[in-house]
Write a protein that binds this DNA or RNA. Structure first.
Length: 424
DNA sequence: TCTGGGGTCCTTATTCGT
DNA sequence: TCTGACGAATAAGGACCC
């Protein structure tokens, strides 16, 4: 979705609290809570000496990109997804930090636990944002959606020392847009009766699913605002964008969005990928990297009690063209060796030669492993037991304790390597 | 400016069985 | 026996989101 920076700020005032309190939130059961500059804010919380400095979190290598920047850094034009090299030119005085995901996961879990004290209907979208359906909590808490939103903001600040913004609306889509426009450190309430008045002046990039390409296509035929998409005949949109996209965007533009807030959605794929600091031709090196990535992917699968049937690899060449190759196995697996063997075969037999900048492994068609598979799958059982023993050792002695012999040599340089955190 | 890593969803083409 | 229609599964690529 388009960044909130390009949305008309003047529209925002009427959805903020005025002298008479918040706008009418009677038909607004959905809250979208979004942490402000989450990774950067967590890092600053850990190191108070950074409070008055521009802080940028992201890949610190030559090919890294920005994941998060605090508002001081944004003042210099630094934005997320921007190459770190570009950010360094815009703001050389900023502190540049590699991400520490384990820490963000911890903080995220604490914030989500706070949400669940309010309602069990919490749908996390990522580490730093979530939808809440508070319709069932209003009576118990003797409050209103806006009241709950304000209370969440107060508690997140008091208990976690972090700032978040909240959107309150009749649908998920409206609530999400509202939180984006409320930033930083704000809250917006969009009444049910004002959905289209709120949506229609916005640029098409505000629609969920419209990125750079789709915005260009729409602009080519003169559709620039949400109102234009709402007014466009559906058959015309279908020809332009395909059936699913057209119907989805048209519905959103008209304010129709009946998607429920759904906690606990199952994962569909798990994978790992890495961009090298320099491009590599050497197939042996690429295979060793595949083994490392297969190891990580399989460990995640086992950690979550999942197995998958389809193994795919992704290869990005120096010119940024990206291919994927996949193979579906007869039986779902969580075994490192099986995933690696399949991935290596796809690389060897189906990938053209060339300079490679990124390689990745992913496992799809996930399910929880059933008992019947153990019978068909006896040879894999030995490998699985070896994996489980290695998982245990890693849990006790750290990730470096156990690794396949093939990985004991030099590691190729990679982007965004996480350095050890200094002792506190 | 030169493009990360984790994912989701959609479209199109091909293959296979009935 | 040959042919075609059709649906499901598989495979590849692309856009998008945070």
């Amino acid at each position: 979705m388009g960044r909130s920076g390009d949305l008309p700020r003047g529209l925002v005032e009427r959805y903020k609290a005025g002298p008479d309190g918040w706008p009418d939130d009677a038909g607004c059961p959905v809250l979208h809570v979004d942490m402000d500059a989450f990774y950067a804010s967590v890092e600053i919380r850990e190191r108070p000496e950074l409070v008055d400095r521009p802080v940028v979190v992201g890949g610190v290598g030559p090919r890294g990109v920005v994941s998060s920047a605090n508002y001081l850094a944004r003042g210099f034009g630094v934005r997320s997804a921007m190459p770190t090299s570009h950010a360094r030119r815009l703001c050389p005085q900023a502190v540049y930090l590699p991400p520490t995901f384990a820490l963000y996961q911890e903080v995220s879990a604490a914030v989500q636990a706070l949400f669940r004290e309010i309602t069990p209907l919490v749908e996390p979208l990522s580490l730093d944002e979530a939808f809440l359906d508070v319709s069932g909590a209003l009576r118990r808490l003797r409050s209103t959606p806006a009241g709950i939103g304000a209370e969440i903001r107060r508690r997140v600040r008091a208990e976690q020392g972090l700032v978040c913004s909240v959107g309150v609306g009749p649908t998920k889509f409206v609530a999400k847009l509202a939180s984006g426009l409320a930033k930083p450190d704000g809250m917006l309430v969009v009444p049910r009766g004002e959905i289209t008045a709120f949506l229609h002046p916005l640029p098409v990039s505000a629609l969920w699913g419209v990125g750079k390409r789709t915005a260009e296509r729409l602009a080519d035929v003169g559709l620039e605002r949400v109102a234009d998409v709402a007014a466009a005949p559906l058959p015309r949109l279908r020809r332009l964008l395909g059936t699913a996209m057209a119907e989805h965007l048209h519905a959103l533009a008209l304010g129709h969005d009946n998607r429920a807030v759904v906690p606990d959605t199952a994962e569909k794929s798990i994978g790992a990928e890495e961009t090298f600091e320099v491009d590599h031709f050497d197939r042996d090196l690429l295979r060793r990297e595949l083994l490392r990535l297969a190891e990580r992917t399989a460990a995640t699968l086992r950690d979550r009690g999942l197995r998958g049937r389809t193994v795919s690899i992704k290869v990005r060449f120096a010119d940024f063209t990206t291919i994927s190759r996949s193979k579906t196995l007869p039986v779902a697996t969580d075994v490192t060796q099986e995933i690696y063997r399949t991935a290596a075969q796809l690389l060897t037999e189906q990938t053209p030669p060339g300079a490679v900048r990124l390689i990745g492994v992913r496992v799809e068609q996930l399910g929880t492993g059933g008992a019947e598979q153990l019978l068909i799958d006896a040879p894999a059982q030995g490998w699985r037991e070896a994996d489980q023993a290695a998982d245990k050792a890693r849990t006790r002695f750290g990730a470096a304790a156990i690794r396949p012999a093939a990985l004991l040599g030099e590691r190729p340089g990679r982007v965004g390597r996480t350095e050890p955190r200094p002792e506190r």
